[in-house]
């Protein structure tokens, strides 16, 4: 079975979820739980870092769609960073760059949140 795990750290008010491994239909619920937890704790400024992610499927992408509305309604956002070309290609294919800000590095994404303030 493909491995997938996440780790969460906080940088100021921004929560950073680091994804590692394969995010697919099988593992999507793990990330889903992360979002649910963060929303419960009213952490709406979220950066998802993809630098250790090897693969994402549409079920994985669906998790982002499922929670973005709620997070943006709460004046927050999900920003994405550190994608490999392969992962970016899938985001791009499905039109995600229109809806999400995608940054080269985690730091840039975090900085974007602090700039808005």
């Amino acid at each position: 079975m493909a491995e997938f795990n996440t780790s969460i750290k906080n940088q100021g008010a921004v929560s950073i979820i680091n994804l590692k491994g394969y995010l697919d239909a099988h593992t999507a619920p793990i990330l889903e739980n992360n979002f649910v937890d963060l929303i419960e704790k009213s952490c709406y400024q979220i950066v998802v870092d993809f630098k250790d992610l090897a693969y994402i499927s549409s079920a994985g992408l669906g998790v982002f769609m499922a929670y973005i509305e709620k997070i943006r309604d709460s004046k927050g956002d999900i920003k994405l960073s550190g994608m490999s070309d392969k992962v970016y290609n899938i985001f791009d294919l499905l039109g995600f760059p229109l809806l999400y800000e995608i940054f080269k590095s985690e730091d840039e994404a975090v900085k974007k949140f602090t700039e808005i303030k």
């Binding site: 239909a25 999507a28 889903e32 499927s57 549409s58 079920a59 994985g60 992408l61 669906g62 998790v63 982002f64 769609m65 499922a66 973005i68 509305e69 499905l94 039109g95 995600f96 229109l98 809806l99």
Partner: peptide, 11 residues
Amino acid sequence: IFSLIGQFLVQ
């Protein structure tokens, strides 16, 4: 649901 909304950007 996840697959469909991820695939087609539906809310």
